[in-house]
Amino acid sequence: MDETNGSKGNVKTAAPKTDGNGNGARTILGVTVDPDAIKQKAELDLKAARQPTKTDVYQSIFRVKHDETPRSRTLGVLSNVFLHLHPAKVNRDAVRFNFTWGMGGITFYLFWVLTWTGVLLMFYYHPTKVQAFRDILYLEHDVPFGKLLRNMHRWAAHAMVLTVQLHMFRVFLTGSYKKPRQFNWSIGVILLVLTLLLSFTGYLLPDDQLGFWAVTVGTNMARATPMLGHEGPFGPQFGMTNYNDVRFALLGGSIVDANALLRAYIWHCIAIPGFAATFMIVHFWRVRKDGGISGPAPMALEKEIKPLRRR
């Protein structure tokens, strides 16, 4: 370390050379300039540049050495904020594709893709009846890569709904919801619902016929909510009308219009992503706290079942 930060060079050049004419050092306007000392420093800098991992800058960023020792591989994961949700080591067979199908991780990656493409789309979108549809046309025809951006947002959303279901299917088939992971399965179900709601609220935003009628069909079901919808069982008895029931609350009106567009936008871009991110934090945290991913675990046999102790 002390080689690289140049302190040795400082010691050498710090000794003032009093005779201004000898060895090339000279004083210009009161500043001593010694070409030899500068050359020496430059050589030291060059030498340091050949070993970038030993510089202060590198070490301040990465904190630990990255070589192929078990210790440094472990620290590489544990001392990195983005990687630290991983354990240092995993079950050898858990790395294989055939156990996890990678669907949970792919779902999370798609959430990131959707966040980024979504943020970029938000730059060009106004959630108003006058502008929403025109913004989509503008995106498709004038914004550089706008069409690609919108396509990617939509297909990633479809893919995410699919991968979330496949993840759930795999977790069921491997019995990974069993003790001690029961609670994390329930969190996962909530994340599934939030994924569907995210996709559904995004459907209305282009303000075209497709989204309009899909949301009309979808929210018309809310009319029929028992007790809370004006067409549902016991709804009229509870005083529900078209103007105060649960559908009115969802749409901000009695028809799908400007308020519904604004509400869908805010649910889609702020509220539900916030909830989903929060539940995801809990989900991943619990994966670790419940002992990492469930397997592949050694198989248990029927005769090994322990009698149940009731609380």
């Binding site: 990974s176 003790k179 397997g295 675990a297 248990a300 029927e302």
Partner: peptide, 17 residues
Amino acid sequence: LIVIPYIDENPLGNGYY
């Protein structure tokens, strides 16, 4: 879906196909 883990009392098949 949420109650599945709380009503499935079968301890076998935990973590493997």
